[in-house]
Amino acid sequence: MNAFAHAGSPHTRIARGQDAMAVALRLIGWFATTGLATLGVATLFFVLLGSFTLSGTMLQLDNLTARFLAADAARQAQFQTIVFTVLGGAFVLIAFFRRASLRSAFELAGGDND
């Protein structure tokens, strides 16, 4: 048997598929965790503005909502750009500090290396 026949065996294809699915699940988990941490930073910002009280946080969110809805379309677009830029920067910063776990998502433990 040559190397091409062995590489295309059903066992090898199944193992590679399982490895790809495991890496995909780890990447999805990494992105979900990083995204949720980013949203947590935004939530913490509003809790901080509300003096660490639920009523103060809700008042700040109500104030922001009222001002956002009263603004014209150009100001709303400018605000959305600012928010997405800040959240994108926070995502990149959190991802930078989580780079070791991203690297470990590609490592496959166990299995045969035939």
Rank of each mutant, 00 (worst) to 15 (best):
M1K: 04
N2K: 02
A5T: 15
A7T: 10
S9C: 06
S9M: 09
P10E: 05
H11W: 08
R13T: 00
I14S: 12
G17A: 01
G17E: 00
D19Y: 02
D19E: 10
D19Q: 06
A22H: 12
V23Y: 01
L25D: 10
I28L: 14
G29A: 12
T33Y: 06
A37S: 08
A42W: 12
L44G: 15
F45E: 00
G50H: 01
F52D: 06
F52G: 04
F52L: 05
T53L: 03
S55E: 08
G56Y: 01
M58A: 15
L61D: 02
L64W: 08
R67N: 07
A70R: 00
A71I: 02
D72G: 08
A74H: 13
A74F: 13
T81R: 03
L87S: 00
L87K: 01
G89T: 07
G89L: 10
F91A: 06
V92K: 12
V92R: 10
L93W: 08
I94E: 00
A95Y: 00
L102R: 07
R103L: 10
R103G: 11
A105Q: 03
F106D: 09
F106T: 06
F106A: 07
E107Y: 14
E107K: 13
E107F: 14
L108C: 04
N113D: 12
